[in-house]
């Protein structure tokens, strides 16, 4: 098939506007990793199941594997590379809340958004949000401690 399907898109990622040549069929995850070199969001299932590809769109967690890049036009995308010295990151380190680290960017994005949006979230809300991701290395108890310490500070 000829490459006539390529279009240009302007995406705001981590507070920078990026011009991107893309296919409408490209997912946001594919564009972040393949075109922008932002490999912090990870492919885990490409099916919306595992949460490793989670980024924030206007501050809300989104699984970037089940979102077309073009849908992000006009919105602010934040990836793990856009988080600098946040409490969430420090807390995940302090509480040994990761091992292999592959799911970690996804968990941190969800946790960061939760801390921003609902700093007083109760256990049920924390569970609801964090249940969107799979961690295969830790027991989740470590992640629970990390999240609790961030929300408790508020």
């Amino acid at each position: 098939m000829p490459e006539t399907n390529k279009k240009v898109l302007i995406l705001s990622v981590n507070d920078e506007d990026k011009d991107i040549v893309f296919r409408p069929a490209d997912t946001l995850l594919g564009v972040l990793r393949g075109k922008l070199g932002l490999t912090g969001a990870k492919p885990g299932c490409l099916n919306g199941d595992c949460g490793a590809c989670t980024v924030l769109v206007d501050g809300i967690p989104m699984k970037s594997c089940i979102m077309l890049a073009i849908e992000a036009e006009g919105h602010k995308v934040t990836t793990i590379e856009g988080l600098i010295n946040t409490k969430t990151q420090a807390s995940f380190i302090k509480h040994f809340a990761f091992q292999c680290g592959y799911c970690t960017p996804g968990f941190i994005m969800v946790c960061h958004s939760l801390a921003e949006k609902q700093p007083h979230a109760d256990k049920a809300v924390i569970k609801e949000w964090m249940q969107s991701n799979i961690c295969r290395c830790t027991s989740y108890q470590e992640i629970e401690e990390a999240v609790a310490s961030i929300l408790a500070e508020e």
Binding site: G40, E81, I93, F98, G101
Partner: peptide, 18 residues
């Protein structure tokens, strides 16, 4: 040792190299 890389997206796995 690799903790800072793993919370900033800088940790690189096989598919991250292109």
């Amino acid at each position: 040792k690799e903790a800072p890389d793993k919370v900033t997206g800088k940790a690189r796995y096989t598919d991250d190299f292109s």
